[in-house]
């Protein structure tokens, strides 16, 4: 594993973001609008006297954490799309760059995106709604880390599908994560789901993370069981999905698709 080659890929994306207003907008604009809308909803809910304990924390906290997952996934999938759109995959994979280095670089890119978006959302929430997510304390950190890993898993899955099916699948870079949203129980507890979906939700790491977050909000302590489940499931899924990515990459090389992705 070469750090130099990972830095090379990161620098390629940094150059891109440096002068692309559209890409910077993606980092600032949508999260800001999400926060404004959900912020007003929570204010409304509090005004009409809904008996939801800590509505602001409940919704704004969930929204910020959902964006962590979303941006972590996008950091990986959109990085691949950038290479596809620029027809740069040949330059990359005809160089000594390995698949592992490529994945590490895109995962690092996703952490950078999450840090930028998460930091901004925390700032906006604090400025506009006097909401400080950090009041949840350090107990939130392991949940955030797990969300980032969940984002990587969905991002790598999305990337392997785009690599295999080309441009016709690129919409998945934005849509795939929403497939997991209903069973991730971002804004509601798992118990509101029908029994079949509840069973499914328990094997989805983000569902444990959002349940845990609600536990942190109501009790002030991190529910260890949810944390352990999320970590264990994430570890298992990450191994499977990385192996799947290598497998798909080899299929694409075998079928000559790597040199045609994006055409």
């Amino acid at each position: 594993m070469s750090l130099g080659r990972i830095v090379a890929l990161l620098s390629r994306h940094m150059y891109l973001y440096k002068r692309s207003f559209a890409r910077l907008l993606e980092i600032f604009y949508w999260p800001f609008l999400d926060l404004v809308v959900w912020g007003f909803i929570t204010i409304y809910l509090e005004k009409v006297g809904m008996s939801l304990h800590g509505a602001v924390s409940f919704f704004l906290g969930a929204l910020i954490l959902w964006d962590v997952l979303f941006r972590a996934q996008q950091g990986i999938a959109v990085s691949f799309l950038e290479e596809m759109w620029a027809r740069n995959l040949m330059n990359l994979f005809a160089s000594p760059l390995t698949v592992g280095e490529y994945l590490v670089a895109t995962m690092t890119m996703s952490v950078l995106k999450v840090t930028a978006v998460g930091g901004l959302m925390m700032l906006f929430a604090w400025v506009f709604y006097s909401y400080d997510i950090l009041q949840m304390g350090l107990s939130l950190l392991p949940f955030v880390l797990n969300l980032v890993i969940s984002g990587w898993i969905i991002g790598v899955l999305t990337t392997s599908i785009i690599m295999r099916f080309g441009q016709q699948a690129e919409v998945l870079a934005w849509g795939m994560v929403f497939l997991f949203q209903p069973i991730s129980c971002v804004f509601y507890p798992i118990e509101v789901l029908p029994p079949v979906l509840q069973s499914l939700a328990w094997i989805v790491p983000p569902a444990h993370i959002f349940e845990g977050m609600r536990g942190v909000l109501t009790t002030g302590n991190a529910p260890v069981t949810h944390l352990l489940w999320a970590t264990g499931l994430n570890g298992g899924f990450l191994l499977i999905i990385v192996a799947w990515f290598y497998h798909t990459f080899n299929i694409c090389k075998d079928r000559g698709m790597l040199v045609r992705v994006g055409e």
Partner: peptide, 30 residues
């Protein structure tokens, strides 16, 4: 590491300058 290629049919990232593209390649080959 000791091989490279060029073709009329390949491209390089359009949103980077010539020098930035060369810097990325230089880092990629360490």
């Amino acid at each position: 590491q000791q091989v490279n290629f060029s073709s009329t049919y390949i491209s390089m990232p359009f949103s980077l300058t010539v020098e930035e593209n060369l810097k990325v390649i230089a880092r990629l080959y360490e």
